[in-house]
Computed example of a mutant assay.
Amino acid sequence: MKSFEPNLIERQQITQNLLRTIRLIGEYKGKQELFKEQSPQVLETLRQAAIIQSTESSNRIEGITAPLERIKELVAEKTTPRDRSEQEIAGYRDVLTTIHTSYAYIPFTPGVVLQLHRDLYQFAVVEGGRWKSVDNEISEIHPDGTKIVRFQPLPAYATPAAMESLHERFNTLWQSEEIEPLLLIPTYVLDFLCIHPFTDGNGRMARLLTLLLLYKAGYEVGRFISLERIVERTKESYYDTLYQSSQNWHLGSHSLLPWWEYFLGVIVLSAYRDFEQRVGLVTKTKGAKTAMVLDAISNMPFDFSIKDLQSQCPTVGIDLIRRILRQERTAGRLECLGRGPDARWQKK
């Protein structure tokens, strides 16, 4: 669409920082198979945790929440959804699973995007799989109740043709191999969000399509580290860089650089660094789950609760988490303030 107008990508500023980021991501891509060969057991633990965290975070960004235990049960398909939030969580779980297992066989067409959106809402009363029928806007509500429109997407009548054009131009460049795929992927995501083709679910679809395209380009980090969790953690930067790069989008005179740097540096590169750290940590500890808890503790703020740790380590049982906390306290690295499940733990 607008970002794929002739020569617009080629005219963008490429900074040394962006070049370095692309180079580092390429180096991490080369280590993927080595990680798999060395630590298959930790990869399985990371894979299970990533599915739960991705499902939880991507929905929570949109205000769709459920207790962690319910999310675990839904992801494991041990229960059925019992309200609208759980219906949408279960739908996200299914689309995520489809992408993880079948990405190589999924053609990247507008029809497939509609099908994935339909599956996202398969358990909900709202019908998915249709382009928006009314105009929408991207806005924010301030605490005093005032609303500010941050971006006006394409009108509903122009959406079907815009999505056809976006996919045609994207696929042409993708197949030509003339432009780095790591630049094409965030550019597609930006245009998708600027078109805002659905009445609801645009953010979740953008994150799912991000995962699909990274898979197709050979970057598998999203299987083991939740990209959605990183977006949730850096939500302000996510929205700020989208806003910066969407300015003058309708005129085709916008800058892709802020979004490129966030997408590649904050999401993809940090996911790979997290991936390497978690896999490497396992070789120094007794097991994958212990490594995950110790890693989560190291990334916690100065004080935290057991619930905070459970959220970061959804595949780890509470008994193991408590045992590790006691060990860390005995070793003098942590201090417990208070008693019971709401007690706070502090680093020393």
Score class of each variant (00 low, 15 high):
residue 186 P to K: 06
residue 189 V to P: 09
residue 192 F to D: 02
residue 192 F to K: 03
residue 197 P to G: 08
residue 198 F to Q: 09
residue 198 F to T: 12
residue 202 N to F: 03
residue 203 G to D: 07
residue 205 M to C: 02
residue 207 R to F: 01
residue 207 R to Y: 00
residue 208 L to E: 06
residue 210 T to A: 03
residue 216 K to W: 00
residue 216 K to Y: 00
residue 217 A to D: 00
residue 218 G to C: 02
residue 220 E to M: 10
residue 221 V to A: 11
residue 221 V to C: 05
residue 221 V to N: 02
residue 222 G to K: 04
residue 227 L to F: 02
residue 228 E to V: 05
residue 228 E to Y: 10
residue 230 I to P: 06
residue 231 V to K: 07
residue 235 K to P: 04
residue 236 E to W: 13
residue 238 Y to I: 06
residue 239 Y to I: 04
residue 239 Y to T: 08
residue 242 L to N: 05
residue 244 Q to I: 06
residue 245 S to N: 09
residue 247 Q to H: 12
residue 248 N to T: 12
residue 251 L to A: 11
residue 252 G to D: 01
residue 253 S to M: 13
residue 254 H to F: 05
residue 257 L to G: 03
residue 257 L to V: 08
residue 257 L to D: 08
residue 259 W to L: 03
residue 261 E to R: 02
residue 262 Y to D: 06
residue 263 F to A: 07
residue 264 L to Q: 09
residue 270 S to T: 14
residue 272 Y to A: 00
residue 272 Y to K: 02
residue 273 R to G: 11
residue 274 D to K: 10
residue 277 Q to E: 14
residue 278 R to I: 05
residue 278 R to P: 03
residue 279 V to Q: 02
residue 280 G to N: 12
residue 282 V to M: 11
residue 283 T to S: 15
residue 283 T to P: 01
residue 285 T to H: 13
residue 286 K to L: 14
residue 287 G to V: 08
residue 288 A to R: 12
residue 290 T to R: 15
residue 292 M to L: 15
residue 292 M to R: 15
residue 294 L to K: 07
residue 298 S to R: 09
residue 302 F to P: 10
residue 302 F to Y: 15
residue 303 D to V: 09
residue 304 F to P: 06
residue 305 S to Q: 12
residue 314 P to D: 07
residue 317 G to I: 10
residue 318 I to R: 06
residue 322 R to W: 12
residue 323 R to F: 07
residue 326 R to L: 14
residue 327 Q to P: 09
residue 328 E to D: 10
